[in-house]
């Protein structure tokens, strides 16, 4: 019963978010200076031609009518057509979304594994040489601009060493540089968060008790401490996942990755209203879903967090 209620609550939440985002995006994109017809029409457009385009795309309708028809079509599963290409929006957004998800998952897997490992290693001997080294690297990783890291990675690993392809997608090797670049910041963040909470947990009474009853250090860290230390870390991972999803613009640009970030930017640049609207709603929904999943994991890790 509780489960049904919770699911219903969350779905409602999701719906409200999607609706609010759709309205906000709809209005915001129209607030940016720049008329899509200007961008569509080209240099030789006659006033007659401009009028033709305006009418064809329904841009002469009052705003509330435009929004109503956009929302109505969306609810019926019709995302409309791109102003720029005339293609169905679904054909533009879905492949890009898939590519971004792939990159984000690979990159978050990398960030999670290495972030937690590095954080645990650092926390077991705080202020040791290893700790300082790992955390130093983490600070640098968190501070470097993604754009620069990407280009330098291409120069070193693709041009000079020739280990990996520099850009595009296709083979698994194509994932390496963009995934590492994209995940660098998240890795550093996760490592620092893990270290902090682990140090805290390792100094608690129950850990001392565990040590006292003769549990091995490995057992203390991996059986007792890590589970409790993971709650804030999981939250960070969830947030970072959403962040990467929406914030992969620079990485996708540098590595010519045909993903959602680049699609958003190029469609904002050409004021391609239907594509921008659908894409941003999709990002918002994904972000919300990821956050819900994060909550569920946290509740699993710490039963006290459950709504009972």
């Amino acid at each position: 019963m509780q489960l049904v209620k919770m699911t219903a609550y969350r779905l409602t939440q999701l719906l409200v978010v999607a609706l609010a985002v759709s309205l906000a995006v709809f209005l915001l994109i129209r607030l940016i200076p720049g008329d899509p017809v200007d961008l569509l029409a080209g240099f030789d457009a006659t006033p007659e031609q401009r009028e033709l385009l305006t009418r064809h795309w329904g841009l002469d309708q009052p705003l509330h009518m435009q929004y109503a028809s956009f929302l109505g079509n969306l609810l019926q599963g019709d995302m409309g057509r791109s102003l720029r290409s005339g293609r169905a929006v679904v054909d533009e957004v879905v492949p890009a979304y898939r590519n971004t998800i792939k990159l984000t998952v690979v990159s978050m897997t990398f960030a999670t594994v290495f972030g937690i490992l590095a954080g645990v290693v650092a926390s077991t001997r705080p202020y040791s040489l290893m700790d300082t080294a790992v955390m130093g690297v983490a600070v640098i990783g968190a501070s470097l601009p993604v754009f620069w890291v990407g280009l330098v990675a291409i120069v070193i690993f693709a041009v000079n060493l020739g280990w990996f392809p520099s850009a595009g997608m296709g083979t698994p090797a194509h994932y390496v540089l963009p995934a590492l670049t994209l995940g660098l910041y998240a890795t550093a963040l996760i490592a620092r968060m893990t270290r902090t909470t682990m140090i805290e947990v390792l100094s608690t009474d129950y850990v001392r008790t565990a040590r006292g009853k003769g549990v091995s250090e490995r057992g203390v860290v991996f059986r007792h401490a890590i589970k409790n230390a993971m709650i804030p870390v999981v939250t960070v991972i969830g947030l970072q996942f959403g962040y990467l999803l929406a914030g992969a613009v620079l990485t996708e640009t540098v590595f010519a990755w045909p993903g959602l970030g680049r699609l958003v930017v190029s469609s904002i640049v050409s004021r391609d209203y239907p594509v921008v609207q659908v894409t941003l709603i999709l990002v918002a929904v994904t972000y919300t879903v990821v956050n819900m999943a994060t909550d569920l994991v946290c509740e699993f890790l710490d039963p006290r967090l459950r709504y009972d």
């Binding site: 041009v159 392809p165 850009a167 540098v254 010519a256």
Partner: peptide, 18 residues
């Protein structure tokens, strides 16, 4: 025809023979 928006990446891809 590949789309590579970033100038530096395009140059790198030519240099690596991609």
């Amino acid at each position: 025809f590949l789309t590579v928006v970033e100038d530096g990446t395009r140059v790198a891809m030519l240099e690596t023979d991609e």
